[in-house]
Simulated assay, not measured.
Amino acid sequence: MRFVIPSLLAFATSVTAIGNTLVFNNSTSPIYVWSVSSTVGPQQTVVSGGLYMEPLHRDENSGGIAIKITKKAGGLYSGDPQQIFAYSIDNAQVWYDLSTVFGEPFAGQRVEVTSDTGGSIIWPKGSNPGGSQVKVASSDENVWFTVYGAPGV
């Protein structure tokens, strides 16, 4: 699946002048994604090898956006473990971080957030390795959340 990432990046970069936030599912099972701000967007199903994308934007009421990800359909409303990829755009910069709530949905799986020039957040085993997780990049870049399959899968 590594050859897919450059193609997806080229496509995402060509979509708009402002950056995008992208969720790439490089695991073997579907994942479920919601964009949450002062409102909750509809559930998006991202199949293995699939991609969810939205332009970076700011919510005027809450300020930031939380991309909430679960391993179960409807997991946002059933108390399932949630991976939270949050970002806030501030003019020329986008600030982003990674956290969990109700458990660690990707325990044992590598998860990471990357951009072209901003810092990377890497959780090699699907849990916070400690330290500050807040990073910053130019708001005209794409910021990627990627979940990988369990080792040996």
Rank of each mutant, 00 (worst) to 15 (best):
T114N: 11
G74A: 09
G74Y: 13
I67C: 12
V147F: 03
L51K: 05
R58A: 08
P105A: 10
N61E: 11
P55W: 03
A73L: 07
Q82W: 05
N91S: 13
V36W: 02
V147K: 09
V46F: 04
N142C: 04
A107Y: 09
Q133R: 10
V134Q: 10
Q109Y: 13
K125Y: 12
F145K: 00
G74N: 04
A66S: 15
G118F: 09
G63A: 08
S35Y: 02
V136R: 12
W144H: 01
D116H: 12
Q83L: 15
A150G: 09
S99Y: 09
G49Q: 13
I121A: 01
Y32S: 02
V33C: 05
E104G: 01
V147W: 02
R58T: 15
D80T: 00
W95N: 11
G41M: 00
P30S: 10
G130Y: 02
G149V: 06
T70Q: 06
L76V: 00
P42F: 00
V101Y: 01
A73S: 15
D140L: 04
D59Y: 12
G64H: 08
V111G: 10
L51D: 02
N91T: 11
Q83N: 06
S99R: 02
E54I: 14
G131T: 03
S78P: 00
T146K: 12
Y32K: 04
Y32A: 00
V136G: 02
L76F: 06
P105G: 07
S127P: 00
S38L: 03
N61L: 11
